[in-house]
């Protein structure tokens, strides 16, 4: 049985018919072609599927589409373009915070969400906030540097 869901995706009103078992991750990728959200584990452990729901970073693999009624969803595609990067994306590039890029859109969104709440976070706080997003390539140093630079912090252990 399908359910009608009305919500907002990257600022535009949307309405879909979703099966109860379809996740928000399935929906943004398959219905909206927003493939910047990645399936890294589909069990809430890696963070690669992170999107913003009502402005807060959530794991879209753990949220069913039918739970999104009336909510506002933002994916990485709403933040910056290749020609005009968002400041967080610019910082990631400057600090070599990505290699394969698979974790990256989610990491950027998590960092944006984090700094929105604590703009002057310390390195320790930044590391803790990013700990729900796994990266297998970088060893995190560049990511931490990037976020520290926007928080106005010198990484203490560099």
């Amino acid at each position: 049985m399908k359910h009608r869901v009305k919500f907002e995706v990257n600022g535009e009103a949307a309405e879909i018919e979703a099966e109860p078992r379809e996740t928000l991750l399935d929906v943004v990728r398959e219905r909206f072609g927003l493939t910047g959200a990645h399936a890294g584990c589909e069990h809430g452990a890696c963070g690669a599927c992170t999107v913003l729901v009502d402005g807060a970073a959530v794991r879209s693999c753990l949220l069913f589409a039918v739970q999104c009624e009336g909510r506002s969803v933002q994916t990485i595609e709403a933040f910056g373009t290749p020609a005009a990067l968002h400041p967080m994306q610019e910082a990631f590039r400057t600090h070599h915070a990505l290699q394969c890029g698979f974790c990256t859109p989610a990491m950027v969104l998590t960092a944006i969400d984090m700094l929105a709440h604590s703009p002057n976070a310390t390195e320790t706080e930044i590391r803790a906030a990013l700990a729900g997003n796994l990266c297998r390539c970088t060893g995190y140093a560049g990511i931490v540097d990037a976020v520290c630079s926007l928080a106005g912090r010198e990484p203490v252990d560099s």
Binding site: G36, A37, E77, F79, Q89, L98, G101, P105
Partner: peptide, 9 residues
Amino acid sequence: DPRLLTGRG
């Protein structure tokens, strides 16, 4: 980087 950072990978 620009395409990977913006979800266009």
